[in-house]
Amino acid sequence: MTTAQIPITGAVAARIDGGVKIYGEGDTEVRALDGVSAQFESGRFTAIMGPSGSGKSTLMHCVAGLDELTSGTVHIGETELGSLNDKDLTLLRREQVGFVFQAFNLIPTLSARENVLLPLLIAGEDHDEAWFDQVIGILGLGDRLTHRPSELSGGQQQRVAAARALVSRPAIVFADEPSGNLDSKSAAELLDFMRRAVKEFGQTIVMVTHDPVAASYADRVVFLEDGKIVDELQDPTPDSVIDRMRQFGA
C-alpha cells in the first residue's frame, strides 16, 4: 500500500458492527460502547458528538485500531481488525489511518517538516513532494517548517498534526477534539483546512467534538449517548446541531 488511492465517494472507508466495549469487571464494569453500528463513507467528513463519557473517544480508538472491541467487528476498507496482530495493526495504522489528538501531537525533537513526514519516515518511504507542498500550502505553514514544535503556536501545532495525518493519504483520518484547545480563530483555520481536505482531495475524516460550530464543518453528525448511537444529522449547521443537542438534553 505505498500508493493509497484517493477513495471514490460512496465506498465505505471504515465500519463498525455491533461494537461493544466493556471496561472493568463486576461492580466497576463500564459499558463504554453498547452495541454501536456505523459506517464512515469515503470522502466524507463525519463528526461524532455526545455528552462527556458517552463513548466518543472509545469509539474512535476502536475504529482506528488503537483499542480492541469486547465484541463486534471493525473494518477499515476490506480489512477486519479483530484478526490482526499487533504488527499488522501497526502497519495498518501507518498506511491507512491518520490521527490528530487534542494535545501532544508532535515529537518535540523533530522539526515541523519532520513531524509532518513522520508516518512516511517511519515507513521508510519517499514522499510525494508536490502533494507535500500542496498540503503545506493550504495550511500556511511554509515558513515554519524548520521550527521545533515548542516554537509554534497551539494552532500551528494542530495544523502540523493535521498535515501529518494527511500526508500519507490514509484511507481515513481520526481527530479527537482537534480544536478543543484552540481559540475560535485558530479553530476555524484548522477546521477549514480539514474540510478542504475532504472536498478537494476526497479525504475521509472522522472527528470527535463538543463544539456545535466545529461539528457544522462536517457533512454528517452522529450523536452518541451512553455508548449507543441515538441520532444522526446530515449537512449540519451550528443551529441545527444545537437544536438536536437540546432534544437529547446534552
Binding site: 501497526t90 501507518r94 491518520g98 517511519i122
Partner: peptide, 11 residues
C-alpha cells in the same frame, strides 16, 4: 504517539 502513527515495536 510514535506507536499510534505507525512505528512498530522493532523500530
Amino acid at each position: 504517539l510514535l506507536r499510534a502513527v505507525g512505528m512498530d515495536r522493532p523500530q
